[in-house]
């Protein structure tokens, strides 16, 4: 991979049934981040997500079945690694992430000061209401992640993040959770020796459709699974050999 060429940036947008949101989200993103390549990972959608994204000039990788958010993001990392991108920004396709935040995230990583930048709505702005249960859950995981990493983590659930090439290569392998990356991902990064910083971003109400985690028993399952995932990261970090940072030459 040539280093003389201009740095190549990729926006990775996992999308599951987002055909209604994309026509608003993509143009807004194009304006905010011109010069970025755009990859929409269509995660087994039942609607016209792939066709809409392609018609708006995005590169589309379609997964034939729905794998889940984490696996879709990881597909984006694999694409970025295969095509030699220097930096990847992961953001939601539902309009929740204000694309104005892209620059702060990119600056934090491109400057070389960090390998991963996490967009924090609690350092930045949150233009929507969240049920207190969810807020509390996030606080608990943020506190846990802060204690373990020794750095203040305010928004471990954020799906608005920027990664440099090393971090993408690391997650393209097998270190990325299949469903929802959360505090466990930050801990994995921490133990693998990656530098993670938080950057303020604005998160808004999603435009249309249903959010990923508001129904039925899912939150309970999610919290239980997250504690298990965190415990496993702690147990694994001394023995798991592949969970080491590999610096690209």
């Amino acid at each position: 991979m040539s280093t003389e060429a201009a740095a190549r940036y990729l926006i990775i947008m996992p999308a599951h049934n987002e055909a209604e949101n994309l026509p608003r989200v993509l143009p807004e993103m194009r304006v905010a981040a011109p010069g970025f390549d755009l990859l929409v990972v269509n995660d087994g959608s039942n609607d016209r997500t792939a066709a809409v994204a392609a018609s708006m000039g995005a590169t589309v990788v379609s997964l034939p079945v729905n794998l889940g958010y984490g696996a879709a993001v990881q597909t984006g990392f694999r694409y970025a690694v295969i095509h030699g991108y220097d930096l990847g920004v992961v953001m939601d396709a539902d309009g929740q992430h204000d694309p104005a935040g892209i620059h702060g995230l990119v600056a934090a990583v491109a400057g070389g000061g960090a390998d991963v930048a996490v967009g924090s709505r609690f350092r930045g702005r949150m233009d929507y209401h969240q049920p207190w249960v969810k807020r509390l859950g996030m606080k608990v995981f943020a506190w846990t992640a802060s204690r373990i990493t020794g750095r203040t983590v305010t928004d471990p659930t954020s799906g608005f993040q920027a990664f440099n090439r090393d971090a993408m290569r690391f997650f393209a392998r097998d270190n990325y959770p299949v469903d929802y990356p959360d505090a466990d991902t930050l801990l994995i990064l921490h133990y693998a020796g990656f530098r993670v910083v938080e950057v303020p971003v604005t998160m808004r109400e999603r435009m249309s459709g249903i959010s990923r985690m508001h129904s039925g028993l899912k939150p309970i399952y999610y919290v239980g699974k997250m504690w298990l995932a965190i415990a496993m990261v702690l147990l694994r970090q001394k023995t798991h050999l592949s969970a080491q940072r590999v610096v690209s030459a």
Partner: peptide
């Protein structure tokens, strides 16, 4: 299955 699905999507693209 996850890896195969991802590879399939990338290859098709």
């Amino acid at each position: 299955l996850k890896v195969l699905t991802q590879e399939l999507g990338l290859l098709r693209q």
